[in-house]
Structures are given as structure tokens and as C-alpha cells.
Nucleic acid binder design. Sequence first.
RNA 1: GCAGGGGUGGCAGAGCCUGGUCAAAUGCGCUGGCUUCAGGGGUCAGUCUCUUAGCGAGUCCGAGGGUUCAAAUCCCUCCCCCUGCACCA
Length: 846
Amino acid sequence: MDSEVLTVEELRRIAVKWQDLWERQKVFEVSEVEGRPNFYVLEMFPYPSGNMHMGHARNYSIGDAFARFKRMNGFNVLYPMGFDSFGLPAENAAILNNVHPRVWTEKNISMFKSIFKRIGSSYDWRREVVTYKPEYYRWNQWFFLKFLEKGIAYRRKSPVNWCPSCKTVLANEQVEQGKCWRCKSKVVLKDLEQWFFKITDYAEALLEGLNGLEWPKEVKVMQENWIGKSSGVLVDFKIKNSDDDLRIFTTRPDTLFGVTFVVIAPDHPKLLSLVKGTKQEKEVKEFIEKAMHDRVSGVLDQEKHGVNTGRICVNPVNKDEIPVYVGNFVLADYGTGAIMSVPAHDQRDFEFAKKYGIPVKIVINPVGKELDAETLEKAFVDEGIMVNSQQFNGLKSREAINKVSDWLEGLKIGRKTIEYKLRDWLISRQRYWGTPIPVIYCEKCGVVPVPEKDLPVLLPEDVKFTGSGNPIETSESFVHVKCPQCGAPARRETDTMDTFVDSSWYFLRYTDARNQTAPFSKSEVEKWLPVDQYIGGVEHAILHLLYSRFFTKALKDLGLVGVGEPFSNLLAQGMVLKEGSKMSKSVGNIVDPTEIMDKYGPDVMRFYLLSVALPETELEWSDSGIPASFRFISRFWSVIEAVSVVKPSGSVSGRGFYDEYLASLSASAVEEVTRSFNDKKFNLAVPSLSVLIDALNEYVDVTENPSEEQVALMKSVARNLTLLLSPFAPHVCEECWSKLGGKGFVSSAAWPVAGVFDKKPIETVELYKKVCADVEKIKGISKAKISKAYVYVIPGEVELLKGLPVYLKRHSGVESFVFAVNDSAKYDPKGKSKSAKPGRPGLYLE
RNA sequence: GCAGGGGUGGCAGAGCCUGGUCAAAUGCGCUGGCUUCAGGGGUCAGUCUCUUAGCGAGUCCGAGGGUUCAAAUCCCUCCCCCUGCACCA
């Protein structure tokens, strides 16, 4: 069978041939066949900048294989693609090369599209969505107006994160460790009037919604932490010699009796009036200045500093008079901006108290122990027994949390509340290449929304890209407009939207991508949403995935969609690494997918990317893996070649052992591969395919003068093989499919069903007896001594076991086979049958 | 610090949820045989240790304990690695 050897040239030729045929015959246009279930497979759409890298290629290989699998399994599959094409890189390229961002973007898009075709992606391009086009972004504007009406969009002045290098503001989610998510420069604070989306209104819904999602745990946990819900109480501390209160938030009301000081944030609104006219005023002001300066300049100061304000407040529960400090570690925008400090039971408070000589008061003791405030070395933060807490003494601290809260509420000195870390989504960007925010500022009328009929507000063309400031502001025609309400001269908003707005609903647009009168029709969305399988990198765990969930919920509240969650199932694919680190230009370890395809064609690369690791784990690129994948494909090819030319020449009828063996391997390969696709563990499909290729190969070799029945068997196994491999390597499989006389395209053929070959079950008891007898006969030992038995028999004897769930493998050539069987259900030495389950092979005796 | 995920044979990477077909899939690498094979192809075998012609025995899945007739798989403790959030009261 060494006749036709597959060459890489042949492989490339085949790929082009079938790509053209698919396109011409519109094989992948979404068909909506009555009675078939709908299935939506989606990869995160790319931002087309520069080259397509291996991570992209992996992403699309995974999605495409899965979409093909679903299609072959009789689903109507929606599998679209588009381009996230607004954003800073285009604008920067424009500044650098003096071309319009659109030109740069279009060039990249067409390059990406040609690579998608080369990969063999089965997208339906009729539904392409491109975010920089007015027919798309006008709906961003439309949604904005709806949000404005509903109060979901609003404008306020606030200190915002400013990236000095991108010259724009960033949302909280886009600041990573004090640095810009895109360019990694240090973020500073700036006070600006900005537009926000009220994502905080959805904090609870976003948290609850996570429960129903089939998402990787780590992503859910990340979102959960980001939303950061905690429940506690608000308590007012009276300020001595004043009518005012200081309100604090705590999650540990059980420690309320142990408060020895209060700390407020440097930017707390009450701070200045508290110290006004006191002798501490100067010191406090200096402290505020330094603390705010540190914060603005991004100093991440681990050291806790503070200053005593000289003011005293009163603990409402025990009338203790305690000092008020200002501290650099207290945040003004979380809780109330002021905290009660319990040094005995909070490590941060403990450190602060030690530093400034503030007393420590113990109110919780560990069970069976008594703490001493004088000698305490660190805060005791665990659960314990309450002391020094009046009527709560003796209670377990955890139980006391609720009891104290209730008591505080009863006395009206406290109120239960829930706090979130989530902040509103800042969407204003001082950049050109984005969706213009559709509002106009009029001196008389204030903020005036652009009337719906005037949408879209198009990006101006008469702008200069100088590299400083927002280019839109250079467009006179854009900025100077008439107020839509009073007609007076007015100024148009020059901020554009965060591009994450674009990607927050594109998956809805795919369902109805050419709609001219609405972003989508509700009924089309109903048909497909939620996305049944979403695939993308974990780096979007918070940003894109949280915004999209918020958007979907907001649109639901507006009555525009019926679903509350956009993505029911998420696969977070792992990175592609080389030599242990991410491929990057600076490290110089890039492997370009197009180069691989230039040499080996798409099938080898796809097969490699899918077979070498689980989709969600990191993939360590290995150069020797590509030739290995080529060898696999080529082994497959030659066996198909061989089968396709075999003619019946013998007349023996009935099936022998080899026939059954092959048939059973084929059936179990179908089972394995199907399972691996359903579990999205594509790499686990490979071993069984490999075994089947070898077995078929040998079968063809060994079978001299095959009967008609045997030839039929070979062909049927070969067809199964081709079907099973086709999501990995669709082009070669099309070619093989036609060689084998398959009808139509393998891409639209039906997935094989396991169990097409009859299995004749034999009673396990009978088998058990047989095996024991064999063991005794062959090994000459008593069955009582066997703890685990592998039985070696000659092929003829295996007849007896055929069709059973036995494990059968070739061992040392053709003569013997090893199989292990078990009857563990019968094994139950101590009457505990929990682990003894039927169907588990292996023979276990004492 | 808090939270999540991991540590498997020379390497990559399954298996762990649901304990027994596990000396542990598959691929790479390595060794040897075969193939009219001129070094990159195909194919077969071997590749923890000892040993056999073949059977076999021992040890083994980060370390140490435990549960069990039986543990890579379950439980506990410890060590190490990765990722995310970072002063959220």
C-alpha cells in the first residue's frame, strides 16, 4: 500500500479545489430547515490589526470544527463572522502613515478574510458584521438614545482614569494594575465630564445570571469578584461638638463594640469641614494633598498612613469616644468613604493602630482561649466567642453578625445594606475612530439628544490626524451645529464611544445582519439566541463578557430582546505558546499561520492545533508536531486510496474474527469521536482515529481475495473514518469522500451513528465462567488466587466474547489478543457495593 | 493578602468528577528491525527497574499521611507553579 503517497503539493491543491467548490455551491449558507433544531456557534470576532496570529488560527479551528460537527449532526447552524473594527490601532496607524483609519482597516479586513478562506472556515458571509460601518454604528447611537431616555446613560463629572499615552479616558475594567489595558502606560486620575452607562443597576442581575451559565469556573469567579458584592450595615457615629454624623459601612457588625477609632478617606466630602478652623487643619490638608497626589500619580503605596483630625466621635452602641483619623487606605467611592476600625479583629486596622499608638480592644475570643490586648501580635480575624459586647457576650461571632444588625436596625442606629465594587461603565473616549456620541450641547437647552431621524451621526471626513488631541475637534462642520430644539448655534459632542460598546451586541446583529430599519428583529434574535457555543480567550473574562451581559439585560428591559443572557456556553481557549512564552514580535518567537499553510495547506495546521492539546489549555507550539500531523493525514490518505481501489474477488461469506474486530473498532471510534466533540475535547478523538486507520490498513493488507461483504465493510469503515475526520481536515476529507463514492459534500453529510454493527450480548455469568475456565486452563492456577486477570486466547476463542463490552487489544502480533473482562457487580466482599459497579471490565477475585 | 487553576513517564499531553480494562491513551524524541530505503518517506517492535524465548516480579503519577479488598483517581496536611483581583472595610 505504498503506491500513492500524499504530497504537500497535492494537499494544497485539494484545499483550493474544495474551497472554491464550497463557495460556488454555497455549502455553508445557513439553512433553516423546518424541524431541525437551531444552533449558534460563535467565535469572538477579531480586531483586524496586522497579521493573523496562531492564537486566532486556533480559535477559528476550534469553532469551525465544532460548527461542522453540529451541522453534520442535523442542526441548523448559525456560524457567522465579522470585524471589530473601530479602535485605537487604526487611528495610530493613520497618524503614523498619514492614511485614513478606514483605509488601514479595510486593508486588514480583506487580508483577514482571505486567510479565513484559506483556513477552510465555514462561515456564512452573508451575515458579516463590520462595526466601523455607519449601518452598524448608527444602532450604537440609537441604543445610546434609548439608554438616555431610560436613564441608563448619563453624564457626570468625576475623577476618571486617564491614559496619557492613548490620550483618552478608560473604564475601570480597562485599568490593569494601575496601567492601561492596551498600551500599559501608567493611568492617572483626571476630573472630567463624561458619559457613563449605569451598569451598577444590573449588579445583582449580573451576579445572579452567572448561576445558569455553562462557563468555565474561573471566568465566573472573576466576574463575581469584579462585581464584588458584600452585605453589611451602615452605622452613624455622632460627631462630638457637632450636629453632624459620620456614616460608616461595615461587614463585621459583630466587632462594633471593639471599635477604637474611625478613619475617613482623604477625599471624603465632609473632611474639610470637619477640620476647618482647628489646629489640625494644616496638617490634614497637607496629608490630603500628598495622599491624592500619590493616588493620581499611580503610586501604589502599601504602607498605611494617617493623621488624627482631632475630632472625636461616639460609638452609638457603647458611647465610647473615639478619634477620627484620615487615612490613605480608605477609598471615598466604596461604602461610605469612612470606616470603623477594630484593630483587634482586622489586620489593616491592627497595623494602623500599632503605628499610631491607638488602643486595641478585644471583643471576640477564640474558642477556649482568651486574648490579651497588650500582647496581641496580629489581629484575630476568625470566628470566635463574643466578649465585652453587652448582651451579645457568649454568642458565636458569625451568628452575632445578623443579631447585631437586627438590633441596630431596631434601635434605628444602623441599616442593613449591600455594597458592590462594580462601578458604572465610562464610555466616553476622546478619539476619532469610534461611534460619535449623538448629543448636542446648547447654551440654552443644555444637553440635547440628536433626534432619531438624524441618525446616524456620521464621522467627519475633514479631520487632521496630528497625534495630539481628539482629531474630531479639528472638524468645523462636525462641531458647529444648530441646536435641534431651539435652533441656536450649538456644539456637538466630540467624544466617541468605547469600542466595547460595538462588541456588546454584535452577536445579536448576526441574526439579522442586513436589517435597514432596526438593529435586528426580535423574532430573529429569538430564533438563535442565546449563543449556544461561544469561543474566545480568557483575556475577555471581564471586559467584553461582562459588558455584553449587561447590554443584553438592558436591551431586554427595553423590550428589544427576550433573552437575558447572551452566551449560554463559553469555551475559553488557551493561548498558543512557543518556548514557554506567548508568541510576540519582541521575543521573536512568532509562527505565522499563513507560512504553515503555504507549506502544508490548512488541514495539517487545523489538525495539529486541535489534536495537540485540550482547547482550554495552553498549547505549546512544537515544530516537529506539524510534520507529525502531516504524517497522520497522509496515513489516512493512503488507506483511503487503498480501499477505494479494492475490488471483490473472493466468495467467502459470513464474518470472521477480523471482520468483527474491524467493525467493532469502527463503532468505538464513532463513539469516541462523537463524545470528544460533545465534550469539546477534540484532541481525545485522535487516538481512536489513529487506531482505526492502522486497523483498516492492516485489514486491507491481510485480506486476500476479499468477498463482497468484506469490501463493503472496508468501504463503510473508510467512509466512517472520513466523516469523523472531516471537522478536523475538511479539504482532504472532501477529496476522500468523493474517492469513496460518497454523495455530495462530506461537509453536509450525516454524522455516523455508533452501533451500526450488531453486537451480540452474552450473559456476563457465562463469560465469567468461560474466563475462569480459560484462566485455569491456560495458566494452570486456581481462580481463587487471581486478583486481576488478563486472558490470552487465540482468535478463534474470542468469538465467544464478541460484542461484549470487553477491552480488546492486539498484543504481540496477530496470534494473541488480550482482553480483560470483569464482573465486578458480583464482587462485593463486605456487602458494600458502592464501588462495585457493573460494566467495569477487569476480573477481580480474592 | 484574597480568590481560581495546576503539579502524571525524556518532552508535550490524556486519565482524576463516576476508585478496579493503568506501567498509565496519543503524539514527539530516542533505539533497533523491515522496506530495491542513496539521511528527511513508509512500516514493525522496544523505550520505569529487574528478569524471561514468551510468561513474570518490583517500584511508580509533587511530598507525607489516611480511607478501601483495591488509589494517579476519594479525604487530610505540606511543598511548589501559574492566572486573576489588588488597601473594597
